[in-house]
Design a protein around this nucleic acid. Structure first.
Lengths: 144, 144
DNA sequence: TATTGTTATACTCTATAACTATA
DNA sequence: TATAGTTATAGAGTATAACAATA
């Protein structure tokens, strides 16, 4: 085992490695499909708050509006979300899931739960919930 | 507060947000300098294991050899690490820190500790160490 | 044959600046 | 003037494949 030096005491380093491990296993889980972490995030928020504007969804997920455009285009092209102009503010788009989008959300969620169970098998249920609560304290954007 | 749906229960999501928050504050902390998370990682490992080959340093950090090349070039150009051919295996490079590299490692470490203290001010010392241990269980590459 | 470092390449993520249409 | 979405662009991270030199 190679010594890491002071790096090994830094939270930022371990966050990067753990996040990267999750991201890579997520990608493997959805290889040969268009699903990615960030696309699932959009589906989940739109499902929870149908009719929300594109910009608000981006804000909830910590995504810049400029970067949201291609993501929404992708999901619309895949037939997973519908984008309609808000009749009360014609600058804005209201997003909602199509039936295919709802189905995809639920299918993907089941796969993601298996992926997380696999990646987190060394953590007890309590540890897992402790971890989520500690992470929420760091990024500060919790919905509760 | 906007509801996130099932996303809010997923460890992968919170890892991504927390890691991203740390990465962005790190970048701000070292704005106007060439220091980045990954460059600090290389300096730290090389300092802990001087003489190690480029490939071994990459492996310890979870970096592909192909991507390591530019990082080492950058650190050599900055005068922070020395790259000498290993006389026992002339394919390999032995890496070590220059004096400037050692100085930079220690200066940057002090700044990183302040950055982490700032970002993690809502966590107790115990929570912080719990977090690191849980993250180690996920990525599995610990040096102890 | 296998390994070390290298080059070339490509895709994703993320950031900024400037534009348009609406408010 | 300000805001929602858009376009263009650029830097960083990370992945693969193929190559030269050496083992």
């Amino acid at each position: 085992m190679i010594a890491l030096g002071p790096l090994d005491e830094l939270v930022g380093y371990h966050l990067r490695r753990a996040s990267s491990a999750m991201r890579m296993d997520f990608a493997e889980t959805f290889a040969e499909t268009p699903m990615r972490q960030v696309l699932f995030g959009v589906l989940s928020v739109v499902s929870a708050m149908p009719g929300l504007s594109q910009g608000k969804v981006a804000e909830a997920l910590g995504i810049r509006r400029a970067n949201m455009v291609a993501l929404v285009n992708e999901l619309v092209d895949l037939g997973l979300i519908a984008r309609t102009t808000d009749h009360r503010d014609r600058r804005a788009f209201s997003l909602s899931l199509t039936q295919a989008g709802e189905a995809m959300l639920h299918e993907a969620l089941a796969q993601i739960r298996r992926h997380e169970d696999r990646m987190l098998e060394n953590l007890t249920t309590t540890e897992r919930s402790t971890l989520v609560n500690l992470l929420r304290k760091i990024h500060g954007s919790t919905s509760r």
